[in-house]
């Protein structure tokens, strides 16, 4: 009897471990593909000549999917959704609602100015504000996850207002599988 329990225990731990493991690998793809759309498009193109692996294929599918999804940007030290961003989110939400099987990771980012730690929190706040707006537009909360990269992941490395405006953004990463 006692032995039976042990076996059941081992089985549960094993299954649980598998779930965690697959969860992790999914996360990793998300991180890898979190760069800018342009970059993803170019990797997709260049990989066409090389042998296509599963991963590249899924990256391609993701890049194609994300091509239709626009980022939204924010004002300095702000996390409220601007009127122009609302229009973008409406268009994005339409796509998300049509593709009900997609999972969405919303990445909050800041420009290079200011404190790393405060920007980490500000990025999280931006991502969550975007998520809240999408929930109000009917996108299921359970499909969306937020992550902040603070000021650590600029899309435009220049040190001017134009670059900063681009870097203060919420970026949407789509997991098609």
């Amino acid at each position: 009897m006692k032995r039976n329990f042990t076996w059941i225990g081992i089985f549960i731990v094993f299954v649980f471990g598998l779930t965690i493991f697959s969860g992790c690998s999914e996360n990793k793809t998300v991180v890898k593909d979190g760069s800018s759309q342009e970059q993803q498009a170019s990797t997709a193109q260049s990989s066409a000549t090389t042998t296509t692996t599963d991963q590249e294929q899924s990256a391609k599918a993701q890049a194609a999917a994300e091509a239709g999804i626009a980022d939204i940007t924010f004002d300095f030290d702000k996390s409220n959704i601007r009127p122009d961003a609302r229009e973008i989110l409406k268009a994005d939400a339409d796509v998300f609602l049509k593709k009900g099987n997609w999972k969405i990771v919303i990445e909050g980012n800041c420009d290079e100015r200011g404190t790393t730690e405060y920007n980490m929190a500000l990025g999280e706040r931006r991502a969550r504000e975007a998520k809240k707006y999408l929930v109000n537009l009917g996108v299921k909360e359970s499909r969306m996850k937020t992550i902040s990269y603070g000021k650590e992941r600029s899309v435009d490395p220049r040190h001017n207002e134009e670059a900063w405006a681009k870097n203060r953004r919420a970026h949407f990463v789509v997991i098609t599988k």
Binding site: C24, K28, V30, V31, I147
Partner: peptide
Amino acid sequence: FTSFKDGNP
């Protein structure tokens, strides 16, 4: 410290 080693902070 905080690290993104496993993807999340």
